[in-house]
Every structure is written in structure tokens, then in C-alpha cells.
Design a protein around this nucleic acid. Structure first.
Lengths: 232, 232
DNA sequence: TATTGATTTCCAATTAATTGTAATATATAA
DNA sequence: TTATATATTACAATTAATTGGAAATCAATA
């Protein structure tokens, strides 16, 4: 979340009002007032999405897009003043993800920004949808598509975090991971929290999937190192 | 995963940009620049889905489609430049699975590609009940043709949206869908609305089909992920 | 084409569930 | 036994889902 957006438009008034409105929505917004500046800004900021005007002095939007696309894949929404340009945007040029014709309402702009950011996120994880998706071990069945775990055919309710932790450990069964690794892989690179969080989540997971006889048979502690999922 | 897609379009610029964008989504994409080349490419590659332009020299899209359909069943999405062609695509019953009119946004194209691939996956996967137009679960009866839902033999009045949402969820019972997926599938590719709309529609649907005892037995929330229709 | 009613959407307040933190207890190995 | 690592617990903070109501849109009918 808190996506970074770059607005490239030579009409300062427009760039600024767009910035204002997107910031109101909670995005981090930068602006650039011509094409060259825009290309530079992309390099510095590495935004999650760019809003790019076509008609600009020095370097026009198409050129900027071309340069962006040589290196980056984030969505780019083009702003076009004339209907004729639409065909160009969609058909001939280099991979704009979406476009809006001026004049546009802020409501529409924001909706499109959201939709395009959403698409990125969604394709990231829904692509794993079809990979082999069921892991079994003893009486545990982990269904990665359905986000569901069964123990001797009884459904176990795991929270998302618990599920993702189990999923990560189980897909690399018998391999020990340090808490740091788990934080990075399951919680994400940006995560800054306490390392003991892992212990607690492991604990909650065990409570749900282990037999509760004091022995753990799935998630094993490797003292001084970390945890692993045991699979015969 | 990693589906193979073949793009057949005589306008190289378009074929290439489509290729670029689909590759960004993780597909393996090949291109062919006229109809004959296209037919050959199909034979060589055996793609999982074809995107096929109608207006082409040598062999037009209709002809290509006919030849493809003599041997293969994978989905074909037709590209049409003019509205008039749409009728033809639909009317001729040649077996196009979907069509998009130019100009189109990449967002739309990708959404349709995904939707068509997903459809195929389901019908391969799931049991032959798939073609059934009546779905039953506990005391619910959903008649897909008649747009009618009964609960213990009493007709329940659903609005169109509610019905389509229920229909989509119920035809892929026990599979979790994110709100993004539901927006795309039920509301349509070009929908730019608020994501919470899904929640609200789910709620109205529940109000009508669930028992009203605080427990939901049909439409289940998978926290942090989305919703699914539960069927024993 | 107005008018009215139904549907749909948007928004945000409320409620519910999850997750993180910190403090304490327990186990383990030197 | 002591020092260190891990497990457990309770509570606070955070995040997500549900809900109600207002506003906008759509559709039917006068």
C-alpha cells in the first residue's frame, strides 16, 4: 500500500490538482513538468504508477513512455487531449495500460488509478493459482488454492498469516529457516517488526494443526537456528 | 500456468504491443503476421489461447478460425475494428469465444484473456455437472437459465447483480475469489468502481438467501482473501 | 419526457477478527 | 545452576468486514 505515483504534465495547474487529489486518497505523489524531467523522476522515484500527458514540449508522452518501457513495467495511464490520439495510444504505441481523455473528472482519474494498481497486485498472486496446489503430509492436507487446511478431513480455520507461514514452510519441507528469513518471506521485505512475532505465529499455528499432546510433529524447532516443516 | 498464447494480426505494431503486455503478465506469447502464417503457427505451437484479428490479407480471421476449429477447441478471442463485424462474429457461430473491438485497453485485453483461460481450466477440471443449468446446495436451488433461485421451494427475488454474483460463485463452488476477480467477472472488464461494492452486494445476497441467524452457510468470507460459495 | 420506484453504488461508522508486542514462564545446554 | 533460547499468555494496536443510509443511476409507466 501507500503506492508512489508520478504525474508528468507540462500544465502545472493540472499536474498540481491531480497531485492534490491523489494525495487526498493517501498516495505518495510526485510531479514533473516536462518529458525530460519526467524520465529522470522515474529513475529517482521508481513509482508504482505513472500518469503521463501526451502533449508536452521537449519530449512528448509517447517518447517518454518508450523510454520508461525499456526498463519498467509499472502501469502508465496516458492523458490525451484529443480523441484522435486515442487510437495512437491504444494501437500503435508502446504499451500504455490505460488512458483518459481530457477533460476528465477527478473521480474517474482516481478510479482508474485504483483499478490499474489493483490489477498489478492481483496478477501477482492470482498467477500462482494454477501451480500444483495441494500439499499433503501425514493427516494434513494443505490446499493452496482454497486457502484451506484439513487435518484428518476436518477443516482447520487458519488466519491468513498462519496459512502463509505454513504454506511457506510446507513448500520447502525439511528445510530449516531462520526467523529473519521467515519474516522476509512471509511478512515481506518491508517488514520492520519484532522477531518474536514469528514465534507467536508459530505457536498459534501449532495450536491449530498439532495434536496437542506436547509433541510437535509438523513444525519443528531447530534450537538456535529456526523452524522447519517436517515431512517423511 | 504459463499458458501459451498466439497473437495473429497483420498490423505488426499491434501484435507486438499485445505480445509485450501479455508477456508482462507471465504468458508465453508468439506472434504471426497474417492468416496463413497464423494457421501454421497454431500447428507448431498448439497454444492455449489465440487472439485473432479479423481484417487480414490473404486469409481473414473468419477463415483462420474455421480452420482452427476443425481441429482445436482452445479459446479464440477475435479482434474487430468495426462495430458491424461484431454481429458477424456472434452471428456466424464459428465458435469464437469472445471478441474485443478496437481500440481496446490492455487492461481489457488482459482481463479477457484471463477470464477465457480460467473458463477452460474449470471445465477441464470439474465434474460433468458443469453444463448443468441447475445448481443445488442444501435447500437452495439455482436455475441458471430461468434466472431463478428457490430456497426450500420458495422463490427468492434477486436483482440481476445479485443473481450474477451468486451464479458466478456457485458455478465455481468452494473456490475462493478475490474482490478484484469478482469485479472483473461479475461487474465487467471496464468497471472502475469501488471495491467495497462487492461487499455490499454480498451482503444483500446473504440477506436474501441465508438463514438470518448470524451464521452464513452459503457465501463464506475468507478473510484477507475474498469470498466463496460453499457446497458440500 | 417527466415521475416514480427500484436498483446500484458510494461512503464511512461500527463491529469483528487478526496480528504484534511485551511480559512471564518454561525448557535446554553448557 | 546459570545463561540463553523458546513457548506461552494477555492485552493493545491494527486491519478487515459488515452494515446502514445517502446519493446516483437506471427502468418502467404515465
Amino acid at each position: 500500500m501507500d503506492s508512489k505515483i508520478l504525474v508528468i504534465d507540462d500544465e502545472k495547474a493540472i499536474a498540481d490538482i491531480v497531485k492534490f487529489n491523489l494525495e487526498k486518497e493517501g498516495y505518495k505523489v510526485s510531479t514533473a513538468y516536462d518529458g525530460e524531467e519526467g524520465v529522470q523522476a522515474v529513475e529517482n522515484i521508481i513509482p508504482d504508477l505513472v500518469i503521463l500527458d501526451i502533449m508536452m514540449p521537449k519530449k512528448d508522452g509517447f517518447q517518454v513512455l518508450k523510454e520508461i518501457r525499456m526498463k519498467y513495467k509499472f502501469p502508465v495511464i496516458m492523458l490525451t487531449a484529443k480523441e484522435e490520439e486515442v487510437d495512437k495510444v491504444l494501437g500503435l504505441e508502446l504499451g500504455a495500460d490505460d488512458y483518459i481523455t481530457k477533460p476528465f473528472s477527478m473521480r474517474e482519474l482516481i478510479a482508474r488509478v485504483k483499478a490499474n494498481l489493483r490489477r498489478v497486485n492481483y496478477s501477482n498472486f492470482s498467477n500462482s493459482e494454477n501451480t500444483d496446489s495441494i500439499i499433503t503430509s501425514e493427516d494434513l492436507v494443505i490446499d493452496l488454492n482454497k486457502y484451506e487446511v484439513k487435518k484428518s478431513d476436518k477443516i482447520i480455520e487458519l488466519t491468513l498469516r498462519e496459512f502463509e507461514l505454513l504454506k511457506f514452510l510446507a513448500t520447502s519441507a525439511n528445510q530449516v529457516f531462520s526467523r529473519e528469513q521467515l519474516l522476509e518471506e512471509v511478512w515481506g521485505y518491508e517488514y520492520y517488526g519484532d522477531i518474536r512475532t514469528v514465534d507467536v505465529t508459530i505457536r498459534r499455528l501449532r495450536e491449530k494443526i498439532e495434536d496437542g499432546n506436547g509433541e510437535f510433529k509438523y513444525i519443528i524447532t531447530k534450537r538456535g537456528v529456526g523452524y522447519y516443516f517436517r515431512r517423511a
